[in-house]
Design a protein around this nucleic acid. Structure first.
Length: 427
RNA sequence: GGAGAGAUGGCAGAGUGGCCGAAUGCGCAUCAUUGCUAAUGAUGUGUCCGGGUCAAACUGGACCGCGGGUUCGAAUCCCGCUCUCUCCGCCA
């Protein structure tokens, strides 16, 4: 959520930003509603002032004066409750409009849609196999690593069982990422896989509604989380942090659940787009200062790159264009790993995403910080980034490390946890 | 799941209808005193939403877990909810 004052003071800029991001908003309504709200606040404050004055006179008033004062007080009470309910109504309407306005955008972000992202750089060598590489579905079938049929029988399309060495691979990825993040000074967490709808909304998800990505639990205000970003960010809801302890770096392991509504039929073969996966996520709270949050953004991206370099996977880093940022992000970098079996002759597929959300989430979640120098409090900046999203990483590993005989070499850094060097056909 | 107790400022803790945004203590900040530290004394010490201002000053309102209600007036009375703690039961 953007600051109301900011929206009204920078109307044109906000409007232009919305246009660049492809979001239609009614800024006139926002401004109109704000003015109305302010008028109601002033009117309500004045009525309450009078009410206080009136009721404070009563104990001292004579028996003659008293009935009149009580009568005045009654009338004031009626007027106040009318003003208040009107104010509530206006504020609800205002919030609705305000919540639709996306974050402002870093000036260097390319304008446009998915294809307009700018490539920051490439890393690693795309392997020349000398044979036709298979996709992860075929590789996994041969090595008995994923059971899609059981997934369908038990939970439906989009669910899967990891099996045998794929299980070890997933655990190894988690261990590797957590170990790395602890070295980088992150506090490690496992987090709830469910969260209140209000927390989801604070982070920027729409838990209910037609096009929701979120599974919600009937008859409760809980939903399955789509990422640990939700629980890590939500953990500090309504908290006021000491600016001296910022930045705060957290890493969370969770399952992620996504309905993927409307996503069927695209490049969805295998475990690329699934309803449940395991992910290690980074989350940071920084001082509300662009220099600090942008430095943290670079740090998160650096860690993501180091993870994929260590895994020996070729990737490209892209600076996501305006139309593809989502609501909360001020800037977003994606890592796309090379997936030799994807599409015709391989393609890059998104494996991580790192966003600087500035104070957009903090304002909704009411996460503030206090410094000894400045009076009052300010909203912190929040950032999030994927360390390892297991399903996607497994695709990249299987496809990049496959050999002609159908076996898969285990990346060096994962071997201690996987327990062997090569995943081969049994027997 | 059953029974009971509780939720007040950074913390502890008083307050059962108006004099309470809230005693007192601790903490914190500033100043004074003092070779240093400690101790002592004085003063100050929240957040949010408005008005006002170039910015301040100044100023109105809200906030005693949350939401309703009663009342001229609610931290205080009534109802609902949430959370915490203790005991019992159950359980990976």
């Amino acid at each position: 959520m953007l600051d109301l004052q900011f929206i009204c003071d920078n109307r044109d800029e906000v409007e232009q930003n919305c246009k660049a991001r492809g979001v239609a908003v009614d800024l006139d309504a926002v401004i109109r509603l704000r003015d109305e709200r302010n008028k109601l606040i002033v009117a309500g404050d004045e009525l309450r002032r009078q009410q206080k004055e009136t009721s404070s006179k009563i104990p001292k008033a004579s028996a003659d004066e008293r009935p009149q004062l009580i009568e005045n007080g009654k009338q004031l009470r009626t007027q106040i409750s009318e003003t208040e309910s009107r104010q509530k109504q206006v504020e609800a309407e205002l919030r609705e409009h305000q919540a639709l306005i996306p974050n402002m955008t870093h000036p260097d972000v390319p304008v446009g849609g998915e294809d307009d992202a700018s490539e920051v750089h490439l890393s690693g060598q795309i392997h020349d196999f000398g044979f036709t590489p298979q996709d992860h579905v075929d590789i996994a079938a041969k090595l008995d690593l994923i059971d899609f049929e059981a997934g369908s029988r038990v939970a439906g399309h989009g669910f899967y069982y990891l099996k045998n060495d794929a299980v070890m691979l997933e655990m190894a990825l988690v261990q590797f990422a957590l170990t790395k993040l602890r070295q980088e000074g992150f506090t490690l967490y496992t987090t709830p896989d469910l969260a209140r709808d209000s927390v989801l909304e604070g982070i920027g998800f729409n838990p209910r509604g037609d096009e929701t990505q979120i599974y919600s639990v009937a008859d409760t205000d809980l939903s399955l989380v789509a990422t640990a970003e939700i629980t890590l960010g939500g953990a500090m809801r309504d908290q006021t942090l000491d600016i001296a302890e910022l930045p705060l770096k957290c890493a969370g392991l969770s399952h992620c659940f996504r309905t993927e509504a409307g996503a069927h039929g695209r490049k969805t073969r295998g475990i690329y787009r699934v309803h449940q996966f395991t992910k290690v996520e980074m989350f940071a709270f920084t001082a509300p200062d662009s220099a600090q949050s942008e430095a943290m953004h670079q740090e998160i991206v650096r860690i993501e790159e180091e993870i994929f370099q260590a895994l020996g996977l070729p990737y490209r880093l892209i600076d996501t264009a305006t139309g593809d940022l989502g609501g909360p992000a001020y800037r977003k970098y994606d890592l796309e790993a090379w997936m030799p079996g994807r599409g015709d002759g391989g393609s890059y597929g998104e494996v991580t995403s790192a966003s600087n959300c500035t104070d957009y989430q903090a304002r909704r979640l009411n996460i503030r910080c206090r410094s000894s120098e400045k009076k009052g409090t300010q909203f912190v900046h929040t950032l999030n980034g994927t360390a390892v999203s297991c399903a996607r990483a497994i695709i990249a590993i299987l496809e990049n490390y496959q050999q002609e005989d159908g076996s898969v070499v285990v990346p060096q850094v994962l071997r201690p946890w996987v327990g062997n060097d090569v995943i081969a056909v049994a027997g």
